[in-house]
Amino acid sequence: MLKRTIYSLAIVALIAGCSSGTKLNDTPVVDRSGGAGQGSSGAASGVAPVTIDPNAATAQGPVGVARIVYFDYDSYTLKPEYQSLIDGHARFLKANPQRRISIEGHTDERGGREYNLALGQKRSEAVRRALNLLGISDNQVEAVSFGKEKPAVSGSGESVWAQNRRAEITYR
């Protein structure tokens, strides 16, 4: 086997050697390097990196009032058991009209990122509307969504998913 390889290598070398003097005139090699774009370094494929520093601060809300509302699968209906939680935040926001909250909707990991973002938005807006009903204006409330990007608990299975289908109230 080895012998044969060496033998065929020798043939290739021989042939390459024989033909090396032949000139190719029919089709010229075309220079296509002129079109290279300008990266950060002159390389056409250059990419300049950007880094974002982590900084996140959340302020205090009402003491003793929970901040998380959970939802059923594929649902954005606010369950009645959360009415006292909503009442507590509404009272606090009324008493502190300078305070602002963000309601962050979240979903479990199943399905697409963008569609889950829209589902999470439905959840945060359900909480926002419940606050609106208690007289809290949208000036104090912003409803946003993280979709499935920020699970409270990692992993899979219904018990995990149930903890991730939620809306969180964050004071600013």
């Binding site: 190719l24 029919d26 089709t27 220079d31 390097s33 290279a36 002159g42 494929s45």
Partner: peptide
């Protein structure tokens, strides 16, 4: 250069002058 081995034809070629970072390109 690209060769059509069956027909024995030269199918043309190109050249590029590139920085090392664009050798893959």
């Amino acid at each position: 250069r690209l060769w059509d081995v069956v027909r024995g034809q030269d199918l043309g070629g190109q050249s590029y002058t590139v920085p090392q970072a664009d050798l893959r390109l």
